[in-house]
């Protein structure tokens, strides 16, 4: 049983780095039985990152939708991730397509939970927008609580 937290993002594109900063914050909590990783939103990178994991929590920043800093929790096997407009880049498929591809290939972890924090500013540079910065500790706390709950559940069944 391995529980993994995988963060996706780019700290040099403002709020896109929120998940990475959350993962680094989570590392300081030394969560027993939980591995924390940073990965690209690309099939080979994500498949490799969640390989061997019984449960995976992915953290990512989501596109602006009017409520910056809002945290959404999505259970991937129960929901379809919405793609507003497919990426024009072939360099990385993005999280939604990667999850869809993993599902088609039967390579989804048995438990995959996605935490998305809505971004406001994706410009070049470091530093989060004020509403995303304000929500960061809440994101860390929610992911930490869920990871520990999964760990307790999984190890109690071991």
């Amino acid at each position: 049983m391995v529980i993994k937290i995988i963060a996706i993002g780019n700290i040099y594109r403002r709020d896109d780095g929120a998940a990475i900063l959350a993962a680094r914050g989570l590392t300081k909590h030394h969560l027993a039985g939980v591995e924390i990783l940073e990965a690209l939103a690309d099939p080979s990178a994500l498949f490799a990152a969640w390989e061997g994991a019984s449960a995976v929590i992915v953290i990512d920043a989501s596109a602006p939708a009017g409520k910056p800093g809002q945290i959404s929790r999505i259970v991937a096997c129960e929901n379809t991730l919405h793609v507003e407009r497919p990426s024009a880049s072939t360099h990385a498929l993005g999280l939604a397509k990667t999850v869809e591809l993993a599902d088609a290939l039967g390579q989804l972890p048995s438990r995959l939970i996605i935490y998305a924090i809505e971004g406001e500013n994706f410009d070049y540079g470091e530093g989060l927008s004020a509403p995303v910065f304000k929500a960061l500790n809440q994101l860390i706390d929610r992911v930490r609580t869920e990871a520990l709950a999964i760990a307790e559940e999984e190890y109690s069944h071991a």
């Binding site: 080979s44 591809l101 290939l105």
Partner: peptide, 25 residues
């Protein structure tokens, strides 16, 4: 239309492709 649609009918070849790409990575 895309690799995701192809993966539903040709999963093995897409898996092979990803394994090859992983080697390059």
């Amino acid at each position: 239309d895309d690799a995701v649609a192809m993966a539903r009918d040709h999963g093995d070849i897409v898996k092979t492709g990803l394994a090859i790409k992983k080697a390059g990575n």
